[in-house]
Design a protein around this nucleic acid. Structure first.
Lengths: 242, 242
DNA sequence: GCGAAATATTGCTCTGGCGCAAACTTCGGG
DNA sequence: CCCGAAGTTTGCGCCAGAGCAATATTTCGC
């Protein structure tokens, strides 16, 4: 597979996608190789820069997506321009599945938090997938259920917890979803700014900064620009219950 | 079918349910009379007092429900005992459809806001309904989609709006869903306390009371115990945008 | 290596709305 | 009709955290 070095990544079907990309992912795990081949042949693949947009709130839901690599933030933008992050989606999950819940448009905007690779299919194929592929519907509805649960938790947190607890919780959740063990702790393995964190917890970047500074003095975390490492997860859990 | 007059309302199949109860409700609207008969014969019906519990958060999802009459509040209870209302469900909608999103337990508690009548079926019938009845799946996923949308809105509101705007929004939403035209305005047609409203908007009953008092002085609303009438909806909309 | 842009830190002030407390009103039951 | 419970109103003090502002640090393009 030798290729030229100048690889301006293309939008559509790259070299040729390997079946192994999908075989271990829940929505497809019960399928045969042959079926996965068919699915892949219908897919488009695309690379996004960090901070890129996969789809926009309100757009007609023409495609649905599978995040192969990277992280995606699902955000809503208020009339006054503030952003609120509703959800974080790690690699291996479907997104933009408006069709599954009977919507014609995307209910939120999906932005990449890191460089990411997504597959996508036209929404018209959705019904085929559901009908033809065993376990596809069940599994996608499970992730949907999971996301509903997360949103619920989010609502309860916003309604009842203090800022410090919310931020602690948010960091713990990110660590659980996407934590990477490193020297002296666990790190969130994608770049995240104070601003991002504040949009996730409904506060200001100033307050997040103050909290992190405080925690760092107490040895709970270490953080550089866009990087957060948790040194004492347990203490953070204690804080988050407060 | 003569019966004694002392009718401690029964839990199970009452006299005999009429097909017309379901024919005009979305999940069943595409079905034939014969099919609806079958569905009704499998249903249990039950009346709940205002403030009763239909099902509890965490319980195994053994049944799913159709609210025939009344209003239901879907609430979550925090470890510290505070209640947060996640959703209001008006008559004519399904609830407790954990199964649809691959859950084994109910994610929240459903309490009746008024005296209510619910039908219910064992969860084991869910798959049958989905498979046999045309439009059932589609329609239920639509309501699911709608609820996801509402939850999203709720998150954004909690994250960005002031208490006054949130309360105004909540009242407007209740008016839209369940408003009843009355002399001099529109009234929320079920009893709702300041406390309820505060759980819906993540504030305290005191603050809600103060706001309502203020609005009443300005002629926007009138409210007695457990009753709220909106006299000037437009002004409330203006407020809610803030 | 330099300048500009992005990101982060920190001090100070000000306020929305919570917590607490007390009184008042409405309702329903006996 | 009276009493107690449930619901509501209102005053007052306080503080978490937002807003504002100025400065420091890191990164990156040229």
């Amino acid at each position: 597979m030798t290729r030229a070095m100048t690889e301006q990544p293309t939008r559509k079907t790259l070299p040729r996608l390997d079946e192994s990309l999908l075989t271990h992912l829940p929505p497809f795990s019960r399928l045969e190789k042959r079926q996965i081949r068919t699915i892949l042949d219908q897919a488009s693949s695309r690379r996004h820069e960090a901070g890129g947009t996969v789809f926009n709130e309100g757009d007609p839901a023409e495609r649905f997506y599978m995040l192969l690599d990277g992280y995606v933030r699902v955000v809503r933008i208020t009339p006054t321009g503030e952003q609120v992050t509703a959800l974080h989606i790690p690699a291996g999950q479907l997104l933009g599945i408006a069709r599954a819940i009977g919507r014609e448009t995307y209910p939120a905007t999906a932005m990449t938090a890191t460089e990411s690779i997504v597959l996508s299919w036209p929404t018209s194929l959705w019904d085929t997938f559901v009908a033809e592929y065993d376990g596809f519907a069940t599994e996608t509805y499970k992730t949907l259920g999971h996301r509903v649960g997360e949103m619920n938790t989010r609502i309860v947190e916003l309604a009842t917890q203090q800022v410090e607890q919310r931020v602690a919780n948010a960091i713990l959740r990110l660590i659980n979803q996407t934590g990477r063990k490193v020297e002296g702790g666990i790190e969130i393995d994608f770049p995240i700014t104070r601003q991002d964190l504040s949009e996730l917890t409904a506060t200001t970047l100033h307050t997040v900064s103050r909290l992190l500074s405080g925690w760092e003095k107490r040895g709970l975390v270490e953080s550089k620009r866009k990087r957060i490492k948790v040194c004492d997860p347990h203490a953070l859990v204690v804080l988050s219950q407060g």
